[in-house]
Design a protein around this nucleic acid. Sequence first.
DNA 1: TGGGGTTAT
DNA 2: ATAACCC
Length: 483
Amino acid sequence: MEKPAAEPEEEAGCDKEEDAAKAMERAEAGEAGRPPGAPEPEEPGGLPCSPEGGSSSRVIVHVDLDCFYAQVEMISNPGLKDKPLGVQQKYLVVTCNYEARKLGVKKLMNVRDAKEKCPQLVLVNGEDLTRYREMSYKVTELLEEFSPVVERLGFDENFVDLTEMVEKRLQQLQSDDLSALTVSGHVYNDQSVNLHDILHIRLLVGSQIAAEMREAMCNHLGLTGCAGVASNKLLAKLVSGAFKPNQQTVLLPESSQVLIQSLNHVKEIPGIGYKTTKRLEALGIRSVHDLQTFPSKILEKEFGILVARRIQKLSFGEDHSPVTPSGPPQSFSEEDSFKKCSSEVEVKNKIEELLASLLNRVCQDGRKPHTVRLAIRRYSSENHWGRESRQCPIPSHVIQKLGTGNRDVMTPMVDILMKLFQNMVNVKMPFHLTLLSVCLCNLKALNTAKKGTIDYYLTPSLSATSRSGKCSFKMKHSNMEDS
DNA sequence: TGGGGTTAT
DNA sequence: ATAACCC
């Protein structure tokens, strides 16, 4: 491929063209995700086996939006586009646009340090995630039009399994067309493409689909991002960051060792987190090569066979984990952190605030949570990540009232949450909290009441009045019209 | 160090 | 209910 240093696609202006229509056609033509438990489809032409051994080779794309919160803020307020912009939560700049990065602002930088580095920095508050969450799901839904197998990772990353789509496209191609195939975007490690290698061909087609995805994101949502195409999730994720804003990279199998060895520390391997890193370091393991060559038996004794095998495979760039469709969320939570909360009245007020937002979200979703959880963080110099929680079932009579837009669901829920609180905290003793979190989970689809039956019309949440944006819970001083 | 999420034990 | 992981 002859792509010079400057990518034409970078900072692309987002011209509108018809493209999603094509994606829709293809999505319709494709058989959607297999039902759970259904057998794996047979490889029609007998796909070559992957170097990972045994299972068929896949084509995975990882899509990673550029400084997502900042992009959403710039769409909301285009006047911010040419300014250095940071998104602030409490006293942290959680992300910032590239203007700000040029001036030395980093992700998760203290507000004071950021202002010091960059006095012109414009800050917007990003503690309310509503618009980010909504945009995040628009991205996932757009990607699902290409292929239904989309896994979310946080708000700004998605994996898509392109294996089936790639196969279908290759079946449409004549053998002449094959020699005209080209890669879209970068090839990792400047490796040359071998058009006689079926694995290369499939990944090239994957790179073309990735380009179409990024085009669609730009045209329909106004968002830019990176993409990485590779044979598994680990590699796709690692390679997506190779060229950074708004570019894409494909990894050919021959360069996977170069990619994984380019990491400076095992902690940079996705899946190896803080705790595991510490335990590995205690064994003298720091580099990827250290982990690759460490005796498996000793590793298994330290971590157990499952974790040991998994992380050692990761160190070789091997990852058999499937792209698991995320579907709708499994839980809704809202939290707030603060310097100090030390009275029951304060706790109740915070809980009411969190719960009001949650009830609106749950109402819009349509499903019903059957469990509620309260989590707290107690003040302590160490142990920022230490939380305690209590959960309990939501009484069925309260569940029934959810989604009716009726505020008297607030009162019983707050009562339950305060019981959970008192179960955790001895309120007769002084306490000092720095975080409260309310989570609604164990979501169940609404009653399988059929249209036209008595049940349907007697189920408040099904009579549609509740769902179309009408549900709104307000805070204490509101006087909602009692309908 | 925010305000979220997931799965495994 | 907690602990680990992800962003």
